[in-house]
Design a protein around this nucleic acid. Structure first.
Lengths: 215, 215
DNA sequence: ATTCAATGTATGAGCCTCTCACATCACTCA
DNA sequence: TGAGTGATGTGAGAGGCTCATACATTGAAT
């Protein structure tokens, strides 16, 4: 009964919760969500199999925390990508492409962010998506016809969200070939589709200016 | 010693494979993919825990078979829903709404049909989606600008697919509230978004005729 | 009738999740 | 300064699951 922590200097880890989240993301990148196990995460963090349960109620809670971290990183990427985009139309269209490119980089990360079971049971994941909506809403209002109610702007964002997620899903499951090879092409296609969507929600009579379809 | 099959008349089941697929769908409807286990499926089918492995290589293979069954049922629904839709534009837009409504009915079924891990490893699932593409391609060709290459028609279908899947994901994870309560509304919104998408891909100069946005 | 391939059973190894009693340590407050 | 205390980690283990292997049963073909 000499619980000498091996592979570590101190008995206490310091910040096990954060370390576990990080390790979880690494594991998922390697073997996917299905291959992930709390036991393996504990092993890699040089901690006993029971330790993670001090910080996370169950396997799903750890996965949700990791997903939240992914969401945080995504927002940083998003803010970066739209920094110098002038028109609201193009800003909305750009997000779709950015999202696809981010998906290629974070792969497994998005797998958990969008895992059906997780999102249904962990509301904080949906809340994190809602923050994106807040960031984009002003652009959506600019685009939508002046007479239309606010709901239309929100509906447009939902549609864009749906579109982007759908593309990401298809990309990650390899529908278009090896994800790494086709990211850029898919991103461009997503952007174009988003442009079409945005154009469809804006009034043709308004001072839109951009043609809204090809390239 | 005495392998007397209990709960069954004969030692052999008759059509265990099909029964397992059916049971799998039921279990998933009740407790979701995450709650599903081969052992439970065997139990409900009154068969030993090892029996399923005579018919399916592993857990995922059984899930994939169940997903394929879902895909088959979906196609039936689809064919039904577009039977009396006249214009190609509306046919394409209708599919999106149909898909959303079907999602509400088959819930868990769609969870496996679109489970990231499964689709990545079981190509037959992607093939089954491709059949839908074949069914819709003619309509897509009608809609797309005459000068555009065939790729554009395919791209439009990919975009529609992405859009519909994205809406379904959001619906099933409860983003809009209890799925049962909001199906119809979401279906309408998906249809509208699809209409916008279709309009964006078609030439404004063509003999399209339909306005392509609000209701 | 006999044999064979297919299908089901029994058993078990190995892994995982999650729990519980106990060990250890950082921190607070007298 | 020096207990006391709560948070964090350990070890052991119960219960469940996946999947492999050896054996039993049975319908069909020879």
């Amino acid at each position: 009964m000499a619980p000498t922590p091996k592979g570590r200097a101190t008995y206490h880890h310091g910040d096990l919760a954060a370390a576990l989240v990080q390790t979880t993301l690494e594991i998922i990148d390697e073997v996917g969500v299905r291959g992930f196990s709390v036991a393996e995460a504990a092993r890699r963090t040089c901690v006993s199999p029971g330790a993670p349960y001090r910080h996370f109620a169950d396997r799903d809670a750890l996965l949700a925390a990791a997903a939240l971290e992914v969401s945080r990183r995504l927002r940083a990427i998003y803010l970066d990508s739209v920094a110098d985009v002038g028109s609201a139309q193009e800003r909305l269209a750009t997000v779709a492409g950015t999202f696809v490119r981010a998906a290629a980089r974070y792969r497994g990360g998005l797998d958990i962010l969008f895992a059906p079971g997780l999102r249904a049971t962990h509301p904080e994941l949906r809340d994190s998506s809602r923050e994106f909506v807040d960031l984009l809403l002003p652009s959506a209002f600019e685009v939508v016809a002046p007479g239309e109610a606010a709901v239309t702007a929100v509906a447009l964002l939902d549609a864009l969200h749906a579109l982007a997620r759908g593309y990401v899903a298809q990309l990650l499951e390899g529908k278009f070939g090896d994800p790494d090879d086709v990211v850029e092409e898919v991103a461009i296609r997503a952007t174009r589709a988003a442009r079409a969507l945005v154009a469809g929600y804006g009034v043709p009579s308004g001072p839109v200016g951009e043609e809204g379809r090809d390239r």
